[in-house]
Amino acid sequence: MTNRLLTSGILAGAVAGVIAALLQFYFVIPVLLEGELFETGQMVHFAADGSPQSDRTEVSLGGEFGRHALTLGFNMLGYAGFGLLLVALMALAETRGLTTITPRQGLIWGLAGFIAVQLAPAIGLPPELPGTVGAEIGPRQSWWMATIISTAIGLWCLAFVKGPLALIGVAFLLAPHLVGAPHLDAYWGVAPPELAAEFATLSLGTAAAGWTILGFAAAWLWSRGG
């Protein structure tokens, strides 16, 4: 049981991590690097002459192979962590007799993971382009973690609680957003809003792909081992 859990979670995470990293290198990292030009002041939005325009620059990945190798490695590490948690929850649902895990079902589990870990926290704390000035890191991490847990509980209730009681899940989904994420009382952004918005949606899009692959791979490996 332990072996099956660990191998399914870690292998699925490694596969999803590699694919997610490749998607990030193509879609997300160039925008992140362009954001860094504004963060470091190499480019300035609303320059001194009062021009409201900033040139769009095509930033290539460059020759920083060490940096990108670390991004690949940490994606594999992060997705392996999510993979282990996902497989642990799948196993819990199965041993409780709530469901039988199939690879097709894994797609839904992956999407639910995406909603809990990426989409719900992004409602309060959008994915940040480098250089974004945010509230204190401590409260943001706490809200982020609480939102993930509350959303996961909410989705679990909707999926597995029988009868009208399942609607308690809605309260868990809503609660973090009624409380609200920590924000500053001023705007500090140095990058163009278009670039920041693009970064947020690209980040969510690639994460949706990564999570769907993670769910499928985890369920496939888990159900094969059984």
Partner: peptide
């Protein structure tokens, strides 16, 4: 054993996420 295995996998998952994120 089942509960222990699940708990172990979950704890390891949290450990990796702590490092990564």
């Amino acid at each position: 054993n089942t509960v222990l295995s699940i708990a172990l996998a979950a704890m390891l998952g949290f450990g990796l996420l702590f490092v990564a994120g």
